[in-house]
Design a protein around this nucleic acid. Structure first.
Length: 193
DNA sequence: CCAGACGTTGTT
DNA sequence: GTCTGG
DNA sequence: CCAGACGTTGTT
DNA sequence: GTCTGG
């Protein structure tokens, strides 16, 4: 699944541009490491253009419950919480990578092989006047499986616009296997031996 | 027992 | 918070 | 997602 | 276990 990701504008001109755009629009600049409930840039389609917008990460759960940060791609089309988003409120989360933890709490950063921008398919909704997003997840592919059994629905760069633009294409992409990624272990916490 | 998914209202 | 699957 | 905090007291 | 902050 995906409970944290990296937004490193220093490593990506695209992300630097997105960051600058939202900053100029008056939104707070995203952190390098994005946590659930943070405000962060997502990409949406507006008048035929892919543009950034700042939203909060996670849908409010029922009865004041938890922040719902992920949606299963396999079932999102049927779930009441997500099905309208699949039809009409798709977005893309730009990142430089995402983190996963293994059973021993070792943390790994996953990136695109050429270290280009990593795009995660997501949905958004408006709750109490506040726009929020939820990242789609799918079964881990070969590159992620050694660490965790789920991963975000990573889109190839050329799939970003089709995901936003065309509902039928989006429904197909929900069932695609994401590209293989590069893995790097990071020091998630100090290990005193 | 645990891990993981899941409420509606924003739509290009 | 509840539910399911393991 | 993870890490860290949690309670102020009718009890053998 | 449940919640909060990051």
């Amino acid at each position: 699944m995906c409970g944290r990701y990296q937004f490193s504008w220093e490593e990506s001109r695209m992300l630097a541009r997105i960051r600058e755009a939202v900053r100029k629009a008056g939104a707070q600049a995203p952190r390098d490491e994005v946590f659930p409930s943070d405000g962060a840039p997502v990409l949406v389609l507006r008048e035929g253009k892919v543009v950034p917008a700042v939203m909060g990460w996670g849908f409010p759960g029922m009865q004041g419950g938890r922040n719902v940060i992920n949606a299963r791609a396999e079932t999102a089309e049927e779930r009441p919480m997500f099905r309208d988003g699949v039809a009409a409120r798709r977005c893309v989360v730009p990142a430089t990578g995402f983190y996963e933890w293994d059973a021993d709490k070792r943390r790994y950063l996953f990136r695109m092989p050429a270290r280009t921008e990593l795009y995660m398919a997501a949905l958004y909704g408006v709750f109490g006047g506040e726009a929020r997003y939820c990242i789609l997840t799918t079964q881990a592919n070969a590159s992620v499986a050694p660490v965790h059994h789920r991963m975000p629905l990573v889109l190839r760069a050329q799939e970003v616009r089709p995901w936003l633009e065309d509902e039928q294409t989006a429904r197909r992409l929900l069932h695609e296997t994401p590209p293989e990624l590069e893995r790097r272990e990071t020091d998630g916490q100090l290990r005193l031996w």
